[in-house]
Design a protein around this nucleic acid. Structure first.
Lengths: 160, 160
DNA sequence: TGGACTATCATGGGATTTTATGGGCCGTCA
DNA sequence: TGACGGCCCATAAAATCCCATGATAGTCCA
């Protein structure tokens, strides 16, 4: 299954249009709705985006899980209520609704950050700041990919 | 299963292309996606690479493991956001995105170092320096391969 | 055993196609 | 009528494909 990977920085023109990176569009190309769903991140001053299908998945997962009423309400309101569906234009661009762009402080450049099933849209400078601290955090905890993989294959081995 | 072994040094042309050693390509030849995923090493001034499938495996492993929210975030940002999928061209070359090449200080030559499931891409001089210090460290700890092997086969003998 | 023939690989350059990005036209709706 | 959104077109830069070359190693046969 294709996932959103890598980071791309694209320009926002005066009409508010930004090209969605072609690699991301390829991931979405199988979908019926040609466009993305955007909402404000709960954790970062950034936007989150995914396919319409993934949004439905998210909705089901939410139902399936044991979440308090209060949390459920909060999520429903802020995520589902606060999201927009934005279509691609002929060139694969989207228009960031002005309210959303302002939330993420995006003016003339936008960074698209792959996060597997979803991607983020950041103001590039803010992203760089976060990345540095994340990287430092990952390093200081000695998170190593090969370790994670080794651990996981141990788990698989133990199962079988 | 085939693994990445040995070290190869290849040239980077002015377009930023490098041949992936054919031995490495053979390891990847069974994969559906003909190319590799590259990300910045957390530990070294070098790049790490693996197959797209391996990355997906990693992704599943991440979900399966008991990882704190914070670590999870750190990994998603620094690894998935910070990685690229690069396809092979007809000749089995990849293009190192300029940002990645710069991170590893790679300009006109790149060393491909097999690390079993993954491989590293180094600036050759930096690699040589690391190798020297590693060798020194191994020597000072009196690490002996034959001892390790002998010990392991003893353990196997005890089991059966 | 030596030598020629062949296959594979790394490398280079040129041509072609895709992308990102900008601008303009023409409806619609207020 | 005037602002705005949707759609189409133009262009430059970048990514991708395609073919050529030289080197190396490996094979086969005399």
């Amino acid at each position: 299954m294709a996932v959103f990977l890598s980071t791309y920085v694209n320009k926002v023109d005066k009409k508010g249009r930004v090209s969605v990176p072609s690699e991301f569009r390829k991931v979405l190309s199988g979908q019926t709705y040609q466009g993305v769903v955007i909402f404000k991140s709960l954790r970062y001053p950034a936007l989150e985006a995914c396919s319409a299908e993934h949004m439905e998945q998210l909705s089901e997962d939410l139902d399936a899980q044991d979440i308090s009423n209060e949390d459920y309400e909060a999520i429903e309101t802020s995520i589902f209520g606060g999201s927009v569906q934005v279509p691609f234009d002929g060139e694969g661009r989207i228009v960031l609704p002005e309210h959303f762009a302002r939330f993420a402080n995006i003016t003339d450049e936008a960074a698209f950050v792959g996060r597997r099933k979803t991607f983020h849209i950041w103001e590039p400078t803010a992203l760089a700041t976060l990345e540095d601290s994340m990287r430092e955090k990952a390093r200081s905890r000695d998170i190593s990919l090969s370790k994670i993989v080794a651990k996981a294959s141990q788990m698989r081995g133990a199962q079988s």
